[in-house]
Design a protein around this nucleic acid. Structure first.
Lengths: 189, 189
DNA sequence: CCCTTGGAGACAGTGACTGACAATAGCGAT
DNA sequence: ATCGCTATTGTCAGTCACTGTCTCCAAGGG
């Protein structure tokens, strides 16, 4: 593999995050990102299929981790239980990545184009979860449904976790599971 | 309202659908759509914020209809019950629009960029459902959760309905509701 | 030492979108 | 009829995301 010690892809990713933080996503051109990384615009597009993707590097790996965690869940777990356990198992990973994901979230919150890409990534995660469930013998339709519901529960839990991480993600996930049961009852909290 | 008898927006929408069907989304330029509609490219972008949006004209109205249906559901309904009832109430509307949505779906299935936009529109629908639930007194977090779960159930139901419309959408929605209960049990269907 | 391989530069081109300004068509008021 | 008023469109110029193609160069293997 040519190209000396430094990895152009990493420099591009970092340069993009920096510039987006400084001036906002829309006000930064791909050429500027490339310049800060010390390469040409063409090279930027060799590493990332489009400008947005520079902010989502590594998502594929996370996707696979999550899918494998679903497969690895104890076989006596229900579909939804396996998904929630998988989310709980990546708590440490999510915590470690926070210094990177927090500023990223701030940028995304300001630009609709990036929010759209987040939705696409989320859909990819759901698909991976469903695939993991199918490997456990869950029927395709039920797997998709459970994956979607599990993702909704995770979002619900992550919302609380973001506000106060002390109780731990697992605790919030348990709360989300209970909230799910309440959705079918007329009694409202 | 100036401009003779014909509505440029409708012509643009129709022209876009035709051209996308003929040659695929990517191979059609905005200028070509405008030309077939008898206007200039600039006018196209006055009616639609971007090229994709030409395929999603009217979604905002559908969104409002669905939200109002949630609000109008009998007050004794559970959050999830209100959402599912709202979906059932638009069955006729969905059936009527099928001649338009079917070819559209074929185009979308072929182009990732449009699939991403579908996800954004779906997120908008979920938000509208959640807003309707909040107007019924459901707490914000629970409303979002119920809206997401309800949308997942609708997708599950619509999948079966698309394959065999005879039993009616409401019947499939009831089946989805039952499937939801099964997600927490180890027993798999 | 040559030859293969793959990342990177250079260059030109397409097409989505935007801002600014001018032109026109219908409409109500006079 | 005519004078504006306003909504809609045309025109033009420009930016920027993204792509194809060709060339160049560094490393590694024989």
């Amino acid at each position: 593999m040519p190209r000396g010690g430094d990895n152009a892809r990493l420099r591009l990713r970092d340069a993009a995050l920096e510039l987006f933080r400084e001036r906002g996503y829309d006000a930064v051109t791909a050429a500027e990102i490339a310049a800060r990384a010390g390469v040409t615009e063409r090279t930027f597009f060799r590493h990332f299929p489009d400008k947005r993707e520079a902010l989502f590097d590594g998502e594929a790996a996370f996707r696979d981790t999550l899918r494998d965690a679903v497969v690895a869940a104890p076989p006596n777990r229900s579909p939804l239980g396996a998904v929630l356990l998988a989310f709980a198992s990546v708590e440490q990973l999510l915590t470690d990545n926070r210094p990177f994901t927090l500023p990223r979230a701030a940028i995304i919150a300001k630009t609709p184009a990036l929010q759209e890409r987040v939705l696409a990534k989320t859909a990819g995660l759901i698909e991976a979860l469903a695939e993991g469930l199918q490997r456990r013998g869950v029927e395709a339709g039920a797997a998709k449904l459970a994956a979607q519901v599990g993702m909704a529960a995770f979002n619900y839990a992550a919302d609380g976790w973001g506000r106060d991480p002390a109780p731990g993600l697992a605790s919030y996930l348990a709360g989300a599971f209970e909230a799910l049961q309440g959705l079918s009852s007329t009694r409202q909290g």
